[in-house]
Nucleic acid binder design. Structure first.
Lengths: 246, 246
DNA sequence: GTGGCGATTATGTATATACATATTGAAACG
DNA sequence: CGTTTCAATATGTATATACATAATCGCCAC
């Protein structure tokens, strides 16, 4: 068994990557239907003339990617069509605007430091009362308002934010890098613009808008809640599904 | 070195999982800032009193999850705050409605088989002309319209669909399981309802709606294009970010 | 100095081996 | 006939080892 060799012909892929992609191809093409039992590790290791560890590495990754299910003593099986999960990339607004070839401009409309009220605590999912920073901002693409931002920052989690005016820098880039975050939840929906947002975005009240709300946690503590409102024509979120990779 | 032992105290985690979670905790808590060099594999293997392979398994997974970056000869480093990517779960409409505790009902409004016109080809990203099936459907939650569905099915890719009326079963569940798909793209935006959709959803024309468009490919061939329109108050998409797992 | 070259080093991949663990199927038993 | 037990089996985890590969550091010549 002389498998200590580099890249086995096939385009620079390592062996376990090749096994992985061979199998996922079979599954995604439909050649192996859901429920189909894929060859045992020892069969594949014989087929590819390699050790079981190498096959195991490939199959473990397929299992983690959700394409197969592994059962001790029984073998590995192609999973039923998975619940559709897509990867949503959420970019910085500056990057989005500049990707459109437009000039980005940021404006801080309002900034209030206060003790959290009931609504703040609900939005931040905060247990006890404490200081929060409430911000209202506008993001422009060229001359037109591109997005409206309403934000709460939990000053208990991010005390440094007390001293920041957010005139020169937007809250998102300020927070990123400064506060490590362990979890985030996004809620996406359509709404009719209320009066305040309509005025800020220079659109009619009731005009359709895309709202993206994000809540962020760091080590169990709520960090920030933010609500971005985009006029209907300014913004599309794109999510891609890709079932696996080497 | 007597590491052939089960679960090292710490709650049933395997050793490489424990190493992985220890390190990701350090990163996510901010103890190790972006750019920080994490200990070399041989240092960690000494620290955990285990082999380098075990450490390697943990670090490889962290690298694939995007938390660290590995450089030969230099070591492994905590990555800069990653581009925000979240996992968007897109459920079957029936499941969504039933999760709300409401009765689900499906209705096929229209069905046309035709040769693809220019618009069809644009929506399906189809190169050449060919037969397509155009469908219009409504999904109800209780008595109220919950979503409107406009769909194109590429009959070249799914010839069996020619014989299906889609009266008893909605296109999504029919397609899932029958057609394996390798890639999907979702576009999410807000729109004002046009006349046709407003009538179908029993809302005012121009009322804000969430639109989810999905294009699906199977083995390089376009399979289907679908556009779901939800009245603003009926639907919220939720996306979660979780940086890593064992 | 500086340009190149080789030694060093950390990661990347693969192997053979060992033992753990869960589960199944069949044999043994009441 | 049902139940309990046990051996067989496939995956899960870990080890020690080997060699490949890429990048960097320092040395040496020019």
């Amino acid at each position: 068994m002389s498998m200590i060799e580099t890249a086995d012909a096939e385009g620079g892929l390592s062996l376990h990557q090749r096994i992985l992609s061979d199998i996922s191809e079979k599954i995604l093409s439909g050649a192996w239907a859901p429920g189909h039992r894929i060859p045992f590790e020892h069969e594949l290791s014989a087929q590819y003339n390699c050790s079981r560890m190498t096959v195991n590495k490939a199959l473990s990754q397929l299992a983690k990617a959700g394409l197969i299910e592994r059962r001790r003593r029984s073998g590995s099986f192609v999973r039923q069509p998975q619940s559709q999960a897509a990867v949503l990339e959420i970019h910085d607004i500056r990057v989005e605007v500049e990707a459109l070839g437009l000039l980005y401009r940021y404006e801080r409309v309002a900034r209030h430091k206060r003790r959290s009220d009931a609504e703040d605590r609900a939005l931040l999912e905060l247990g006890a009362a404490g200081p929060v920073l409430a911000l209202e901002c506008r993001h422009f693409a060229g001359k037109r308002p591109f997005a409206h931002e309403q934000r709460l920052i939990n000053l208990t989690a991010v005390p440094e934010a007390s001293d920041e005016e957010f005139l020169a820098i937007a809250p998102s880039p300020w927070l990123i890098g400064r506060v490590p975050w362990s979890e985030a939840e996004h809620r996406i929906r359509a709404v009719g613009a209320d009066k305040q947002v309509a005025a800020a975005l220079d659109i009619a009240a009731g005009a359709p808008c895309l709202v993206v709300e994000r809540r962020t946690w760091s080590a169990e503590h709520p960090v920030t809640y933010v609500r971005f409102t985009y006029p209907a024509d300014s913004h599309t979120l794109v999510a891609r599904f890709r079932p696996s990779q080497g």
